[in-house]
Design a protein around this nucleic acid. Structure first.
Length: 684
RNA sequence: GGCGAGGUAGCUCAGAUGGUUAGAGCGCAGGAUUCAUAACCCUGAGGUCACGAGUUCAACUCUCGUUCUCGCUACCA
């Protein structure tokens, strides 16, 4: 950020209100943003930090349906849970809103109408399934049917979860509405598309200007999309949950969740403005004088890059009145104990569970996560690392330094600051602290939060060194005044640590300032550190506690239990509908043997197999290349469905299907006779 | 397969525009010390900077190729 902005509008990705928060979310989009805004506030900048729950979209209605409750109940539950978790963790939003509020619906509609009236949308009619009984169009996920590829009877309209094929509802054989259980009818429906291709030249030009300024991972991802060529994208959906499309001819239609979600940043700001008597438009709209524009920064995870760097800017541009993001410092992903974080596998450290297990220790987690933020590439959280960082850095460096000084002050001077104490008398310390502030400021403003956090600890490290070099405990009996001076210098260092930790470790900062007996809501960077004559310090208390091995072991154990118990649960997916014997016997499954196997060119998963079925030798294309090497499966006996209609895959006609067993992680293994049986043996 | 990001000490990671002996923290070894939560402080060992070519007086840093990891996308029984 070269330019000095008058105002800052900072957002973090809206969490989706269908589940709780885990440390991956925090490390992705919230912690760095929180440090960033806390820093700007201490510089007395005009900054607002906005976020809220994203409460629309099909996934929420599906979840509600599954649990037999309303979408409203789902979002109320998770909105509250998420909001509380953020508060406990010390994420300092100026406003945390939710997209189900009327003000958001109104603004989203206004936004849509504005684009509509400018003629920015392309209207397109297409045939979609319609449930006559429920009198509504069916979103892809509301249709199930037989997958044309793998014959799975429970494939969804957008995807077959068994074989992973991306589908369109039209592809399904025997489509069934999940609402009425009846066969839906095809009916023409109109949708409004945003012609992203039309904005491509403008986007290219705009993004070109961000080269070198934006992180390479973000910029690279954007150019990757532009290179592929942008397509018009539907901004409306046939859904019953979301923001109504504000057109008379669009009854029963809702705005696409990715249109309304980012507008949520704006509507939240609007509500904040109303509540606080502020002019929200100054934070979002282009001002008559360009230098008066607010600096818009989106903090997100890398999965959101395309929406925040391409689609939303295109929308803002099309609207015309709004500012565009100055930067989108997306983080990569955080892994956990050698594996990806996974909500479905329950492989996660949930924020609310951490707060229960480690009450009052939010700063410890904040510190560890800040130290390992996935700023340039994926990074990894392990409990052992958590323990090491807390014990070796927070306890041993920062906490220990403060404690040493406080104890010495009380031991020698009854905790009272007297004599020359207004200023730091050691020039080297003074210079080093100033350098520290500069480094921290530079690092934060170029989104290098790990470096900034380390710089704070370095100041404490310097304090420890200063203490050992001057050894006040040795010289007290002979040079009490020198002792006093050394300790007072240390107090200045502690005060500066109290100032600096406000951004990173807000709760600990309060403790530090409390020990120094300084009452201040905020300690701005430009306020001097001065102790007046006779200033009485409070009692020393420990800032951080050592983390014992047993605590870490328990957490690691807990993680293993959760993951494995979840796998057990997942292995028991519910049974499908009953079929009669005739349907079963219609399938002709035989024992066969793989004669030849080779990778299908230009694919990752496909193997082309030649199978001896006893009846004949035939070619089958199978998506098992990720689990089997071609040369290792020659001679492998398999079960093969021989009377499946042939299908052309990648230009090869696949005649039949190999039966595979699949676990919850999608791993595949052959299903074959236990004993070697002759080719062509019937399986039933 | 296409595209993007990344592969730097045992571990986690830094290393603008190419330039003398490649850095930090942790871990490890040794020393010093006792004010402190056996913490602090000092010293040291440890890397052919994924691999192979090329450009250059000079490459971790630029170009090309190979390979591995992650992501997006395609294909997917």
């Amino acid at each position: 950020m070269e330019k000095d902005f008058k105002r800052y509008t900072v957002t973090s990705a809206l969490p989706y209100a269908n589940g709780p928060l885990h440390i991956g979310h925090v490390a992705g989009a919230y912690l760095s943003a929180d440090i960033f805004v806390r820093h700007l506030r201490l510089k007395r900048k005009d900054v607002i930090y906005i976020c809220g729950s994203d409460e629309h979209g099909a996934a929420i209605t599906i979840k509600a349906k599954k649990e037999g409750i309303t979408p409203r109940q789902i979002i109320d539950k998770y909105h509250q849970e998420i909001k509380t978790a953020f508060e406990n963790f010390g994420i300092s939003f100026d406003f945390y809103h939710r997209t189900s509020e009327p003000i958001h619906h109104d603004l989203s509609k206004e936004f849509f109408l504005s684009l509509y009236n400018k003629g920015e949308f392309i209207e397109k009619d297409s045939d979609q399934y319609y449930d006559a009984e429920f009198n509504q169009f069916l979103a892809d996920r509301y249709i199930t049917g037989t997958c044309p590829v793998c014959s799975n009877e429970n494939a969804y309209g957008d995807q077959c979860e068994k074989c992973g094929t991306s589908l369109s509802p039209i592809d399904l054989i025997n489509p069934i509405s999940t609402l009425s259980g009846k066969t839906p009818v095809l009916k023409s429906t109109k949708h409004w598309f945003l012609p992203l291709d039309k904005y491509q030249p403008w986007l290219e030009n705009w993004l070109e200007g961000k080269k070198g300024d934006w992180k390479t991972n973000v910029y690279g991802q954007c150019t990757s999309w532009l290179k592929a060529g942008l397509q018009p994208r539907a901004m409306t959906r046939d859904l019953d949950w979301g923001v109504d499309v504000p057109l008379p001819e669009a009854e029963g239609k809702k705005l696409y969740v990715w249109l309304d979600a980012p507008i949520g940043y704006i509507s939240a700001t609007k509500q904040w403005g109303l509540d606080n008597g502020k002019d929200w438009e100054k934070y979002w709209k282009r001002q008559p004088d360009e230098n008066d524009n607010s600096c818009l920064i989106h903090f997100i995870g890398k999965d959101n890059i395309v929406f925040h760097c391409i689609i939303f800017p295109a929308i803002l541009h099309a609207h015309g009145e709004y500012i565009l993001p100055e930067n989108v410092p997306a983080n990569e992903f955080l892994n956990l104990e050698g594996d990806k974080l996974s909500t479905s596998r329950n492989h996660a450290v949930w924020l609310h569970e951490y707060m229960e297990d480690f009450p009052g220790k939010q700063d410890e987690l904040r510190y560890v996560l800040t130290s390992i933020l996935p700023e340039t590439s994926d990074s990894e959280f392990t409990w052992k690392d958590y323990q090491a960082r807390v014990n070796n850095e927070l306890v041993a460096i920062l906490g220990n330094f403060v404690n040493r000084v406080m104890i010495l002050m009380h031991k020698y001077f009854e905790g009272k600051v007297t004599g020359a104490s207004n200023e730091l008398t050691d020039k080297n310390l003074h210079a080093a602290i100033n350098d520290g502030y500069d480094e921290i400021e530079r690092a934060i403003e170029s989104f290098k939060f790990r470096q900034a956090s380390a710089a704070v600890i370095d100041i404490a490290r310097m304090g420890n060194r200063y203490l050992t070099e001057n050894e006040p405990w040795k010289i007290f009996s002979t040079e009490p005044e020198k002792t006093r001076e050394v300790l007072h210098n240390c107090l200045h260092i502690i005060a500066h640590l109290g100032v600096l930790t406000q951004t990173f470790l807000p709760a600990s900062s309060k403790k530090i300032l409390g020990m120094l007996n300084i009452q201040k809501e905020n300690w701005f960077y430009d306020e001097p550190v001065i102790f007046i004559e006779g200033h009485q310090l409070n009692k020393a208390e420990l800032l951080f506690e050592k983390v014992e091995d047993s605590i870490i072991e328990r957490q690691v154990e807990k993680l293993k239990e959760k993951t494995s118990s979840n796998q057990m649960k997942q292995s028991a997916i519910p049974a499908k509908q009953n079929i009669d014997y005739e349907q079963f016997s219609a399938m002709d499954i035989r024992a066969g043997t793989i004669l030849e196997a080779e990778k299908v060119a230009k694919t990752k998963k496909l193997l082309k197999l030649l199978i001896d079925t006893g009846i004949d030798q035939r070619t089958v294309v199978s998506g098992i290349a990720e689990y089997y090497e071609p040369e290792n499966i020659i001679g492998q006996q398999v079960s093969i469905l021989v009377n499946l209609a042939p299908r052309e895959i990648k230009g090869i006609v696949s005649q039949g299907m190999i039966l595979m067993a699949e676990n919850s992680e999608g791993k595949l293994t052959f299903v074959s006779p236990v004993d070697q049986f002759a080719e062509g043996s019937v399986i039933r």
